[in-house]
């Protein structure tokens, strides 16, 4: 679970109670490898591909994907981070983390941007991220990579690369990190 959700749950600071481990660290590593190869396969040439991770949950996956794509193709892939706190339509509901910063150290215009997040849920974060990206330049294409697609979309958004499709209840929480993917509940402390 991204730090923001952790800080958000019942008034600032719920406790995440793990219930089921859906993927372990090896499963996550294999899924990451597969997604990296799918990125290469889909885009043929990765010279114009850059990877942008969403703060804070998507950053680790973006780093891993950029690393694997770079190793396989023998060329470094641009890696950035994006914080969408100022673009959300639910500002006021989610705390702003001062340490979650945007850092896009390259020109986006003409690039194929792989937008990366840990868990795809309502799609509102991705909507905000697309608006934010537009302020940095006109990307040639934006593709979405997530470790977990847990359903319950509220906007017409779909992922291009998925680690695992995971049917969930709306009130459950999904924690996706390099160490594994866990379903659980958040309870008041």
């Amino acid at each position: 679970m991204a730090k923001r959700e952790r800080a958000l749950a019942p008034p600032y600071g719920g406790v995440f109670v793990a219930r089921t481990t859906v993927m372990d660290a090896d499963d996550v590593r294999r899924a990451t490898w597969r997604m990296a190869h799918e990125i290469i396969e889909r885009n043929h040439d990765t010279r114009d591909v850059v990877v942008v991770g969403l703060q804070t949950g998507g950053v680790w996956l973006a780093q891993r994907l950029a690393q694997v794509v770079g190793e396989v193709n023998g060329e470094d892939v641009g890696l950035g981070t994006l914080d969408v706190a100022f673009y959300r339509d639910d500002i006021g509901l989610r705390p702003v983390l001062p340490e979650a910063a945007t850092n896009i150290p390259f020109e986006l215009t003409g690039k194929t941007v792989i937008l990366v997040d840990d868990v795809l849920f309502t799609g509102r974060t991705i909507r905000a991220a697309l608006n934010a990206l537009a302020d940095y330049g006109r990307a040639r294409a934006v593709q979405l990579a997530v470790m977990v697609d847990r359903g319950h979309r509220e906007l017409p958004i779909r992922p291009d690369y998925v680690g695992k499709n995971l049917p969930t209840r709306r009130d459950e929480m999904v924690d996706a990190t390099e160490a594994g993917v866990i379903i659980g509940d958040v309870t008041a402390p």
Partner: peptide
């Protein structure tokens, strides 16, 4: 001051404006 870092970054963009 920490939050200001984010807005310094916004001010450096080619479109220095957010819909917050």
């Amino acid at each position: 001051l920490r939050l200001t870092d984010s807005f310094v970054e916004v001010s450096r963009r080619s479109i220095p404006k957010v819909p917050a």
